[in-house]
Design a protein around this nucleic acid. Structure first.
Lengths: 128, 128
DNA sequence: TTGATTGCAAACAATTTGCAATACT
DNA sequence: AGTATTGCAAATTGTTTGCAATCAA
């Protein structure tokens, strides 16, 4: 994996926005603001690579009908998050809480839980 | 809202499969099996209507990159479900459990939860 | 130099839309 | 009759792909 200008700028942007989910178009807009550029193809390819290696989480946003990406912190295959409908802030839920809850549910329904990756919508403390 | 052949057949199919999520293409396949037909445009339009009136749930399936639809039972804006990766069975989670869990989380993070509609993947009792 | 990466434009796939023809009440 | 609904084909949108040119090692 060669390191290139495009890749490092995309990573930079992801890091600067690690508390939010970014769509490819948002990333391109930020690139433009920085007077940098990168083709859509390269962006999509790199984001998909990062998702494959679990360096970013790739989530589908049902409201905008697009994928959004966010720098992964820790294990991201078992994951619940709260997303603020207003400001886009994403709060990652503590694994303890969710694991306990899911364990309970798993027992009750005889379900072997593999992975989860879910978003619960609402308003964050600031926006409510 | 006129009642038409197409609408009633689509409803019939949704009712016959109320335990599963169906993609538009799956619905068209079932239509073909029944020797009936309906254009894609009509199907999409009708499904969107049903989603708008909350008669069906409209969920995005990240694996296939398509929307899937399922006859709604009760309130469907606050909803968690377990989906079997193997057979596609969907188990709807009892509101009590989830509401309690979410209340807890909401308190902890000062988050005002609006709606949720999430899928947790795994293996059902039969397939595990 | 060699293989990875890029940008472009074309290809794709799911979904939506405009519009004239048709079906419902 | 008058409006809602349909089917078709074209348009749209987000994403992917083929390929020649370019870049990193």
């Amino acid at each position: 994996m060669y390191s290139t200008k495009q890749k490092s700028i995309i990573m930079e942007i992801l890091k600067e926005n690690k508390e939010r989910l970014l769509s490819p178009d948002e990333i391109l807009d930020i690139l433009k603001l920085k007077d940098e550029s990168c083709s859509k193809a390269t962006l999509y390819r790199f984001l998909d690579n990062l998702a494959l290696t679990k360096e970013v989480r790739k989530c589908y946003n049902q409201d905008t009908n697009r994928f959004e990406y966010q720098l992964a912190m820790g294990d991201c295959s078992r994951h619940l998050h709260l997303k603020c409908k207003k400001c886009g802030l994403v709060i990652h839920l503590d694994c303890h809480d969710t694991e306990e809850f899911l364990h309970h549910i798993s027992e009750e329904h005889g379900f072997l839980i593999d992975n989860y990756e879910s978003t619960i919508y609402g308003l964050c403390p600031k926006c409510r």
